[in-house]
Design a protein around this nucleic acid. Structure first.
Length: 627
RNA sequence: GGAGCUGUGGUGUAGAUGGUUAACAUAUCGGCCUGUCAAGCCGAAGAUCGCGGGUUCGAGUCCCGUCAGCUCCGCCA
């Protein structure tokens, strides 16, 4: 079949959406079919797929004992497997041996049965479960394994310490809602692979043992036995490899790949996580946007059943900061930040005026109905603002006559009215002000905006591209420029002249994909000219020797005919969590780590033997006893 | 590195101001029970209150420390 051109496909609108909603496997047909395997199977059907169509059929089922309801001469067992559950019936009148065996069943025993699907009488139908119209009359049973009483209930909507769930994760995953998360994850990855394949992307694997590079997150290190005293690093992302694959002429690469960053954890951050890593040659950012939009659109439509319209909104970084105080704004609600530089200049409030004189900004945020906040609440907010980096937080209760506020005396009545007007403030609202460096004023109020976000926000996805990130930011600690994205990001061509005179004002060809206030991906067009790449390294404070030592292979590769290229990486765990409506990515990772980066099930990380250490030429410093 | 919240039978919770045998639900075990599906009824067993120290005549409760989990800040190109 001849290859189609990507852009032709896009313009022809050939991204087909099948409206598929379930997993399309043999399971859907109830019967489990493995071609060529006909004898000695322990189960012929999945429990949860049986229904009225199977009445009078002989079936072999196997699974776990869920609930048991023992009525004396009649025992009901809910048999659970991967697909769901079905009710088994044991009737004493049909024989004592089997019945006595059934009486010995306990929760989570593993059993295999042979039986017949029978229709339930009208009064005994259970409409609340999919298999509720039928039940299975058991003719024979093998108890394949017994089970200890589980430490928590194997059912949905449990309220258990996460500690326990993580320690017994294999039992936690037995719960249908967790099993469904694994299925959702599988289906998501399959849709991604199919989509990328449709557009001629090659999935190429890259090394997990690679070399540590400066900048970025802290690396996980792996000691080398062959070269004692030297270390591999686990990749923070396959960034350099995918660029090198572009030099190799792959043109379109993707990978569902594990990445590692040794930084502190959060609800949406694990030390190892999965990226959908994408890199293309000969496509510009707009092409890449369209492609990425098509991918997430497909996921939401096929998995979530939500219609998504393209193209997504785009917003420059500067605007996102000015209006929402963050580079990942949640557009589902307003409460936008207001620029008050002009009004602040007319006030007699020294704090505001000083901030302006130092080149900073005065920003405001209106909390509708904020009158319900007590004086102490506002003190707490001030404390929070300080923790977030602001020097302070000014506030004002908006009343009919004016402001009730410690700073009201610095503002003449017309000025108060002008500010109220600009912030659309009404009596009963509270106004919050921060005067500081522009970025601080924005981010502090941006945090408070999120803190006071309306409850019950709509679930509908609001996708957003944040574009035009700065190429560099200034690292105060190290007294030098740092890449905002990474050092391989291309500057916008029209900003190239600024590279020498005003590096901080250079905009990058970098972009983040944001969904409802969550960053779900980011990428950039890359530098494919080794001269420009060298210059960027210099600006970042890397000497010629350092850049040759750390990145020589990249610079060399770029000099062998590197095509223009760029790409993006999507956070798969976050995507899946959002698709499932979960707050934490731990829910959709089969075996996650705790906030301490340990695994409660295996006990990792753990000490190793002296022999292992010796082979690696490592020695462990004894922990200092604190006196 | 910092801050906050949580920790009581297997599980989930209750135990104001310190006071005798730590309560409830559920699970577990035993008995009864032929149409349940959160089955029902009767009974039994099950907790050194995360750990260590301190204050006190007396600590689940107060204080200090520590451990673990969660959330956030710093950090995460």
């Amino acid at each position: 079949m001849p290859k189609k051109e990507l852009l032709d496909e896009i313009s022809a609108g050939e991204v087909k959406l099948a409206g598929l909603n379930g997993d399309r496997t043999a399971v859907d047909d109830g019967e489990i079919i493995i071609p060529g395997v006909t004898e000695d199977v322990q189960k012929t059907h999945y429990c949860g797929k049986l229904n009225i169509d199977y009445v009078n059929q002989a079936v072999k089922l196997a699974g776990w004992v869920g609930k048991r309801r023992d009525h004396g001469g009649l025992i009901f067992i809910d048999l659970r497997d991967r697909s769901g559950q079905v009710q088994l019936v044991f009737d004493q009148r049909q024989g004592n041996d089997l019945f006595n065996l059934a009486e010995s069943l306990r929760n989570e025993y593993v059993i295999a049965i042979k039986g017949e699907v029978i229709k339930r009488s009208e009064e005994t139908i259970n409409r609340s479960i999919p298999t509720g119209e039928i039940e299975v009359s058991v003719n024979s049973m093998d108890i394949l394994n017994s089970a200890k009483t589980p430490p928590f209930y194997i059912e949905d909507n449990i309220n258990v310490d996460e500690n326990l769930r993580l320690r017994y994760r294999y039992l936690d995953l037995r719960r249908p809602e967790m099993l469904n998360r694994l299925k959702l994850r599988h289906r998501t990855i399959k849709l991604i692979r199919d989509y990328m394949d449709r557009y001629d992307f090659l999935e190429v694997e890259t090394p997990v043992l690679t070399r540590s590079t400066p900048e970025g997150a802290r690396d996980f290190l792996v000691p080398s036995r062959m070269q004692g005293g030297e270390f591999y690093a686990l990749p923070q992302s396959p960034q350099l490899f995918k660029q090198l694959l572009m030099v190799s002429g792959i043109e379109r690469y993707f990978q569902v790949v594990r990445c590692f960053r040794d930084e502190d954890l959060r609800a949406d951050r694990q030390p190892e996580f999965t990226q959908v890593d994408i890199e293309t040659s000969f496509l510009n950012a707009e092409n890449l946007f369209f492609l990425t939009e098509g991918l997430v659109k497909e996921l939401w439509e096929k998995i979530h059943g939500t219609e998504i319209s393209q193209p997504f909104t785009k917003m420059p970084y500067r605007e996102a900061m000015n209006r929402f105080g963050t580079d990942k704004p949640d557009l589902r609600y307003g409460m936008e930040l207001v620029d008050l530089n002009e009004a602040a200049g007319k006030s007699d409030f020294k704090v505001f005026k000083t901030a302006l004189e130092n080149g900073g900004a005065v920003k405001g945020l209106c909390l509708p109905g904020g009158v319900s906040l007590s004086r102490k609440d506002l003190d707490d907010l001030t404390l929070l603002a300080r923790q977030l980096g602001a020097k302070g937080l000014a506030w004002a209760y908006v009343e009919d006559e004016g402001w009730r506020s410690p700073i009201a005396k610095f503002f003449k009545q017309p000025l108060i009215e002008a500010i109220n007007h600009k912030m659309a403030a009404r009596p009963g609202d509270v106004l919050l002000f921060v005067a500081d460096k522009w970025e601080t004023s924005c981010t502090v109020l941006g945090h408070l905006r999120v803190k006071f976000a309306p409850e019950n926000l709509p679930k509908e996805p609001h996708f957003l591209w944040v574009i035009d990130f700065p190429l560099f930011h200034y690292n105060e600690e190290e007294q030098r420029y740092d890449s905002d994205h990474h050092p391989f990001t291309a500057p916008r061509p029209e900003d190239m002249p600024l590279l020498e005179e005003d590096p901080l004002s250079v905009r990058a060809q970098a972009y983040d994909l944001v969904l409802n206030g969550v960053e779900i991906g980011g990428g950039s067009m890359r530098i494919h000219d080794s001269v420009i790449q060298s210059r960027i390294f210099e600006l970042l404070g890397l000497s010629k020797e350092e850049s040759t030592e750390k990145f020589g292979f990249l610079l060399e590769a770029l000099s062998y005919g590197a095509p223009p290229h760029g790409g993006i990486a999507l956070g798969l765990d976050r995507l899946i969590a959002l698709l499932n409506g979960d707050d934490s990515i731990r829910q959709v990772i089969p075996f996650p780590k705790t906030a301490n980066a340990s695994c409660l099930m295996t006990g990792a990380p753990a000490p190793v033997s002296d022999q292992q250490l010796q082979e690696l030429k490592l020695s462990i410093e004894e922990k200092q006893e604190e006196k």
